[in-house]
């Protein structure tokens, strides 16, 4: 499994697309300048922009690589030579998943200093009213990473049943948006404003809320940007949710992948 993960990671690192991420890093140079357009919250804006960029890069990479990783192996018939090695399919799948997760982690580790440097510059041009909580910012980026690893697990699950990249890629994008707004919708249907909705609609929405991953739980941007205190309980709960969610998705993916025929 370790060998598969390492080889997968090596594949990403030799991919030209992965290197285009370096170009995005150049965008970070523009963050302090853009942020200085703000009237009252230059540092906060620089944090917002930096976190947005990091999140966007991770979103693109996780959808693209998470959605195509398995598909590419099957499409290019690499699976024939790899699955016929004495490793179980589950290990192959997990290896690919952890390789992808490691790749996202590496990219994040690369982006963190760049993003922090941009914020640091901005905060020195215009010191913020409230000092930047660097630890919170790091935790926020860490949770972003968790969110996208969870998304990769979703994309892998779609890949195990799909014969094209269409379902994994668009399924992942849809899951991302649905999972990002599910909390908002859930809150809405349980508010007074939604009294007019039919019970069936509410039931379906509640069901969907529990089935799809809740990505908004991983969003700590407000805490990082406005130096709001983090709730330890919330952080721990979300981390546990991440572990449970990824395990469940991977178990399901392994189950489906084991039954799949390699023609």
């Amino acid at each position: 499994m370790y060998v598969i993960a390492l080889t997968t990671l090596r594949g990403y690192l030799r991919d030209k697309i992965a290197w285009s991420v370096l170009l995005v890093a150049i965008l970070f140079c523009g963050v302090p300048f853009t942020a200085s357009l703000s009237m009252r919250q230059v540092t906060e804006l620089s944090l917002t922009l930096s976190l947005s960029l990091v999140s966007f890069v991770l979103l693109v990479l996780s959808v693209f690589f998470g959605g195509t990783s398995l598909w590419k192996d099957i499409e290019r018939r690499y699976t024939f030579s790899v699955i016929s090695l004495p490793i179980s399919r589950s290990k192959y799948l997990l290896g690919k998943f952890f390789g992808t997760a490691a790749f996202l982690t590496l990219i994040t580790l690369f982006l963190i200093p760049v993003a922090l440097a941009a914020v640091y510059v901005a905060s020195h041009i215009n010191p913020p009213d409230r000092p930047v909580l660097w630890a919170t910012v790091l935790i926020c980026i860490g949770f972003d990473l968790m969110k996208y690893i969870l998304l990769v697990a979703c994309a892998f699950l779609f890949s195990t049943v799909s014969t094209s990249f269409f379902l994994p890629i668009f399924g992942a994008i849809l899951t991302f948006f649905a999972g990002s707004m599910s909390q908002q919708v859930f809150d809405y249907i349980h508010s007074d404003a939604a009294r007019a909705l039919s019970p069936t609609t509410k039931l379906v929405a509640t069901f969907v809320y529990y089935v799809i991953p809740n990505f908004s739980a991983f969003n700590l941007n407000l805490n990082a940007v406005y130096a709001l205190p983090l709730s330890l309980q919330g952080v721990l709960l979300t981390a546990s949710y991440f572990v449970a969610g990824v395990s469940l998705l991977l178990a399901l993916a392994c189950l489906l992948f084991n039954r799949r025929e390699m023609n």
Binding site: L49, S55, D144, M181
Partner: peptide
């Protein structure tokens, strides 16, 4: 707007 902006609401 908030719903579709996913985690980019601040931005």
């Amino acid at each position: 707007l908030k719903a579709v902006s996913a985690d980019q609401a601040q931005a």
